[in-house]
C-alpha cells in the first residue's frame, strides 16, 4: 500500500523533510517505524525513542500499535505544546 507520511517540529528537522510517500506492507505504525528507520541516519534518530513520539492516523491521534490497513496519511510528531 502507498502512504503519505508527515513529520512535524523536531521530527521534521531530524528526518529532513516535512512529508514523503512510502510504499509498505507494514501492518502497524510500529512496524512501519522500523522500516523507516533504515532509510537514513536522520530517520533512525527520529525514531530512536518511541516513548517520546506521538502519531496520528488519517488525522486522528493514535497509538503506535494502530493498524495501517486502509490508512492514507500517517503523521509523526513530538508531544504537543499548544496553548
Amino acid at each position: 500500500m502507498t502512504l503519505e507520511v508527515l513529520y512535524f517540529a523536531s521530527l521534521r528537522e531530524r528526518v529532513g523533510t516535512p512529508r514523503e510517500t512510502v510504499e509498505t506492507q507494514a501492518a502497524t505504525v510500529r512496524a512501519l517505524m522500523a522500516e523507516l528507520s533504515a532509510r537514513s541516519a536522520g530517520h533512525a534518530a527520529a525514531f530512536a525513542d518511541p516513548a517520546s513520539l506521538r502519531c496520528a492516523v488519517d488525522q486522528q491521534l493514535a497509538n503506535l500499535d494502530a493498524p495501517l490497513d486502509g490508512v492514507r496519511e500517517l503523521a509523526f510528531f513530538p508531544p504537543m505544546t499548544g496553548g
Binding site: 512535524f8 517540529a9 523536531s10 496520528a56 491521534l61 503523521a75 510528531f77 513530538p78 508531544p79 504537543m80 505544546t81 499548544g82 496553548g83
Partner: peptide
C-alpha cells in the same frame, strides 16, 4: 478546553 489544548491540539512551539 485549555488543558486539552495544551496536550492534545497539534501545535508545537519553538
Amino acid at each position: 478546553l485549555m488543558d486539552w489544548l495544551k496536550s492534545r491540539a497539534p501545535f508545537w512551539k519553538r
